[in-house]
């Protein structure tokens, strides 16, 4: 059985080295828990991600808690929460305490100009694997595109897409 400490360490490492929003962390968490550690299958990860995305608050914290719970129940719950929260907390605390800003350093600025485009690939490429494990085929490909188009071009909140999917899934489930 996976120890709670191991769960904490894996999330802490991911949190410490991932720049940008929580979305960037999703493919990295997937790579760690599915490919490298083999704690979950691709499908189990997708289900955890669906639940995390449907809950309020920071998605990564929700995802960490869910994966932690699956692996080690209450100990994993706590390990997942601390592992996802602590890295940002500690780094920001240090930055807030220091008067001089790291982001004024010209080397840091230059490095991040290189990192930013690469971060987009880190989100895009794992989508190919996610589509395969979600068993999306044929006309269903239009759903992710519709969600994306709606949010990007029409400014619609993704909450509506989630609610619609829950409603649609529930109706189809009841009919079976």
């Amino acid at each position: 059985m996976v120890s709670a400490f191991r769960i904490f360490i894996e999330f802490f490492k991911i949190g410490f080295f991932t720049v940008g929003s929580g979305f960037v962390m999703i493919p990295i968490i997937q790579d760690t828990v599915v490919n490298r550690r083999k704690w979950l299958t691709d499908e189990e990860f997708m289900d955890a991600l669906s639940v995390a995305q449907s809950a309020p608050g920071p998605n990564i914290v929700s995802l960490g808690i869910l994966i932690g719970w699956r692996l080690r129940r209450i100990q994993g719950f706590i390990a997942g929460a601390l592992g996802t929260i602590l890295p940002s907390f500690l780094i920001i605390l240090v930055i807030a305490m220091m008067a001089n800003n790291v982001r004024d350093n010209p080397y840091v600025i230059a490095a991040f100009k290189g990192v930013k485009p690469a971060v987009i690939s880190l989100i895009l490429i794992p989508l190919i694997g996610l589509c395969k494990s979600a068993k999306i085929k044929g006309w269903a490909y239009i759903i992710p595109l519709l969600v994306c188009g709606g949010v990007v071009f029409c400014g619609i909140s993704p909450i509506y897409a989630i609610l619609l999917a829950i409603l649609f899934g529930a109706i189809r489930g009841i009919r079976k």
């Binding site: 979305f23 995305q53 992710p144 969600v147 899934g169 189809r172």
Partner: peptide
Amino acid sequence: SILLALRPVVIGMVLTA
């Protein structure tokens, strides 16, 4: 069925990001 229906939406949200 709900979890299955949520999958393409979640993929759409990651794509959106």
